[in-house]
């Protein structure tokens, strides 16, 4: 269902950060596999741990991921607060269908 534009759609830094295929892939991997380190994320990728670290720093500046230092390496995770806001699109669609179904019920149950 057509949903209201989210507050995030004008968040330029956020989407500029996601506009890079490597960074996008990192966000998807962190989202699907859970928190990870730059070393682990470098496995299977043609770029170094250091390069991954730079991309994660860009994502962190945009507020998409957060890093937590444990021992020698940072553990990176997708920031649930930012993504919560972005999730409003599906939530809005779901709520709109609840409302539409109640209208359909009123319409047919007379």
């Amino acid at each position: 269902m057509p949903a209201p534009t989210t507050a995030l759609s004008d968040s330029t830094a956020l989407f500029a950060a996601l506009g890079d295929p490597t960074r996008m892939a990192l966000v998807i991997e962190l989202g699907e596999q859970g928190p990870s380190t730059a070393s682990a994320l470098a496995v299977g990728r043609p770029i170094t741990r250091q390069a991954i670290g730079k991309q994660l720093a860009v994502l962190a500046t945009a507020g998409i991921v957060v890093g937590r230092r444990t021992g020698r390496e940072q553990i990176w995770a997708v920031d649930p607060v930012v993504l919560k806001a972005a999730g409003s699109r599906l939530e809005a669609a779901s709520t709109a269908w609840d409302s539409a179904l109640e209208r359909l019920r009123s319409f047919v149950e007379d």
């Binding site: 506009g19 989202g31 997708v78 993504l83 919560k84 999730g87 699109r89």
Partner: peptide
């Protein structure tokens, strides 16, 4: 992209 992220959320 907003919607893509929304799936994970």
């Amino acid at each position: 992209q907003t919607s893509l992220i929304a799936r994970y959320v």
